[in-house]
Design a protein around this nucleic acid. Structure first.
Lengths: 113, 113
DNA sequence: ACAGTATTTAGCATATATGCTAAATACTAG
DNA sequence: CTAGTATTTAGCATATATGCTAAATACTGT
């Protein structure tokens, strides 16, 4: 594998890794219904605000979320809604889990992501 | 967040986490072109075979790959090709990275994953 | 059975991730 | 300016992930 190829996968992994946490998946799912401030998310999730803030920072750092500050509050929203498609595919993995190789369809190239 | 909801996201995170590594992304990408044995993948990737075997185990454990043993070799293949769509979305994140909020389209419900 | 090849498992050292509390920063209202 | 609220950053302890080498397992051919 060339250095360029390696860099490509490393960069992709960085983004997918940002999604690879239950709390961050919850946040993405919740933000699919509209922007939320940190305090709102903190109320929904069962962890301290600094922890939520850090998770939000990870997602923002990966380019998945964007923020807007209004007054005291910081509102987060999805910048790349296609990540929601991940959920569907993940459910497909789960449905197939352990069963005799019923596979999902190959990706359609014309599918708008 | 209820215990059930938490379990749901934890389970999804488990699957996404399995993809969140450069080597494992390379493997998924390579297997999209057909099944490969461990030795073939090891030749392509610049790490030791035990390391490759472990990465393959992670992906298989998550339900993303399946195996077939033929003779001395173990062949791995994609069980859930929809994971390939992840790549497209990840590229969308990268294209937008740092730029002034050009967002991807929201997911189409009719899109076959 | 024996030797050789392909793969996996074990065990270890190191790196990264997670969640907490305490403290710092940013803003608003009086 | 001061007090109070919302958010982020720092620092720490613990957990998980990674890659290696060595050893174990699985299979083939003689």
């Amino acid at each position: 594998m060339t250095a360029t190829t390696q860099a490509k996968y490393k960069n992709q992994a960085r983004i997918i890794k940002a999604l690879a946490h239950p709390t961050r998946l919850f946040i993405v799912d919740e933000l699919s219904r509209g922007e939320r401030c940190v305090c709102e998310l903190t109320d929904m999730i069962g962890v301290e605000m600094p922890t939520v803030s850090r998770h939000l920072g990870v997602l923002k750092g990966a380019g998945i979320l964007e923020t807007e500050k209004r007054g005291l509050q910081v509102f987060y929203r999805l910048r790349v809604p296609c990540v929601l498609n991940f959920f569907k595919c993940v459910e497909a993995v789960q449905r197939d889990d352990g069963k005799p190789a019923r596979r999902t369809a190959a990706p359609k190239m014309g599918c708008a992501l």
